[in-house]
Design a binder for these strands. Structure first.
Length: 222
DNA sequence: CACCAGGCAAGTA
DNA sequence: TACTTGCATGGT
């Protein structure tokens, strides 16, 4: 009946728990959420290691660090000038509106906080939701490019569905559970990386083949 | 060599 | 409103 939940069970059974989000503190998770925009996690990890090695991964240290110096530290994550500004915008916002306290910030109502975070330049829907879910333990479903691609290819959602439409669909299909949302998004990314790449889908070996026998055909081959 | 990775904002028509 | 482009490193 509920395809969304059935697929979750298949993925969890196939891959096992993914242990997201890698990061020891909410601050580290939040930093990672910005750095991983359009970027492979292995590169983000190098950038975060740089910050850790120099003991810069605290709110005060990061907030005080000039944006030009921050850019140098996060270079391996790519888009480093852009991301340094975005991180700075976010840190300035938290210092200004929440006295530099993530704990205080995450004590807010989830929907109000989401609206606030989205006003920060450089924080879009996916980054905001990743921060809320993985750093703040709030029950928001994170939609990403894989979610869109996988579920559109299985004709569960439309190819032209937007972020909020997809998010609403998942919200209506699943119990509001932080751990479930956490695990499901991580499983979708795992599935996407291994079996549902843009131009190289591996449908024959995909665990969702057991779900509906679906095999994706690129449009030009149909 | 080409292509892509856990996006977003600004510019164009 | 609906595309397109800049941002940039590193893995496959």
């Amino acid at each position: 009946m509920n395809k969304v939940y059935e697929i979750y069970e298949i993925l969890l059974n196939h891959f096992g728990p993914q242990g997201w989000w890698p990061g020891d503190t909410p601050l580290e998770v939040m930093v990672g959420a910005v750095l991983t925009q359009n970027t492979n996690w292995t590169n983000v990890s190098k950038a975060i290691d740089n910050l850790k090695r120099e003991d810069l991964l605290s709110f005060e240290k990061l907030h005080e660090l000039p944006v030009e110096e921050l850019a140098v530290k996060i270079k391996p994550a790519g888009y480093f000038n852009l991301k340094a500004k975005r991180l700075k915008n976010l840190l300035d916002f938290i210092a200004r509106e929440h006295d530099g306290s993530l704990e205080e910030m995450f004590g807010m109502d989830m929907y109000t906080l989401r609206e606030e975070i989205l006003t920060v330049k450089g924080i879009g829907p996916e980054t905001a939701d990743s921060i809320l879910l993985y750093a703040g333990n709030k029950p928001v479903f994170v939609v990403d490019a894989y979610t869109h691609r996988i579920f559109a290819r299985h004709n569960i959602i439309g190819e032209d569905e937007g972020y909020y439409e997809i998010q609403e669909y998942f919200g209506l299909s699943l119990p509001e559970d932080v751990q479930l949302f956490n695990e499901y998004h991580a499983l979708i990314v795992r599935l996407g990386k291994e079996f549902c790449k843009k131009s190289k889908p591996l449908c024959a070996q995909c665990p969702l083949g057991k779900f509906d026998g679906f095999t994706y055909q690129p449009l030009e081959l149909q």
